[in-house]
Amino acid sequence: MSRRSLLGLIVLAAVLAVTPFLVPNSYYLDIVIRMAINAVIVLSLNLLVGYAGQISLGHAGFVGIGAYASAVLPTHFGWHPLPALAAGALAAGVLALLVARPILRLKGHYLAMATLGLGIIINIVIRNEAAWTGGPDGMPVPSMGLFGFDLMSDRQWYWVVAAVLLLGVWGALNLIDSPFGRALRGLHGSEIASQVVGIDVPRFKTTIFVLSAVVASIMGSILAHYVGFVTPDVANFFHSIELVTMVVVGGMASVFGSVLGAVLLTALPQALATFEGWEIVVFGAILMLCMIFLPRGLVPTLAARLRLEN
């Protein structure tokens, strides 16, 4: 890990440590918790999209698998939440492994359409299996138990998701500085050149796709337990697009950009609620301006400009 990355990790840890003492009430703490959950999901997606160059428009499907595993298994089969979370992550990983080879052979918009189709299939299954999932109305999720007590208060959940976010950022920073991360950046630049230097391109693409799916599933389970209720919207197409937008706005191939993108786009709809029906228009205009003036995303563009000024 570079000195700059270590400094960024320390700053993030400091911000996470003081945030719960600065937010004025539970409403804002709830938004901060959702920011942290989204940040980990976006971080995993950025490893796939930003570093490996493999677009995914169905990532919310893996979030849905984790969320519904944590709802269905404890409710219908009496599982403890932690094994249910692990089972959801395993199911997402196995599904990603099974579809990775055929899907990741595709490129460009063909790959985008294939991943979109995968996400839509997962969403349709969740909606249609109403006897198990509650159908379009969703279903309640039991509380999460850790070390003999249930996580109930927002403050308890904050420290859990803050620790997960910090661990996720630390892991991603080490991953991208490892030989594996360098291989990912290589195949993003040119798959043919990567094959020439001996990189097993299909294996690396499959591995990062499975890893990204597993992390998304785990965070889907955490989100479901935190909210206490889950609906098929967690796995729909619009949620997938929202996640990709967070990657793009924060910065492709940027760990801290993933965090910033998730923070901004989780908070922005709440901030625009006062526009009474025009919030979607304003939201779209803000995104459009970001893409015009910050085409590489917020963090990479600002970092490049600061380097030029220095």
Rank of each mutant, 00 (worst) to 15 (best):
M1V: 01
L9S: 09
I10V: 15
L12R: 02
L12A: 03
S26M: 09
S26Q: 14
Y27N: 14
Y28G: 07
Y28F: 15
Y28Q: 15
M35Q: 03
V42W: 01
L45I: 05
A52M: 00
G53T: 10
Q54M: 15
G58A: 13
I65K: 02
A69I: 05
A69H: 09
S70L: 13
P74M: 06
P74A: 01
T75V: 13
T75D: 11
W79N: 01
L85Y: 02
L97G: 15
A100W: 11
A100M: 08
P102H: 12
R105I: 00
L106K: 02
L106C: 11
K107Q: 12
H109C: 04
L111D: 11
A112E: 09
M113P: 11
M113G: 08
T115N: 14
R127T: 14
A130H: 03
W132A: 13
G134W: 01
G135D: 03
V141N: 05
G145S: 14
G145Q: 12
D150Q: 14
M152G: 07
R155V: 14
V161C: 06
V161G: 07
V161W: 03
L165F: 03
G168H: 00
P179I: 00
A183D: 00
S190F: 07
S194D: 03
I199G: 08
P202K: 04
V210N: 03
V210F: 00
L211R: 01
A213N: 03
I218L: 12
M219F: 03
G220A: 01
I222W: 03
I222M: 08
H225E: 07
H225Y: 10
G228W: 05
D233Y: 08
V234D: 12
I241F: 14
E242Q: 15
M246L: 09
S254P: 07
G257H: 07
S258L: 01
L260G: 01
T266Q: 10
P269H: 08
A271N: 08
F275Q: 13
E279K: 11
L287I: 15
L289P: 07
L302Q: 09
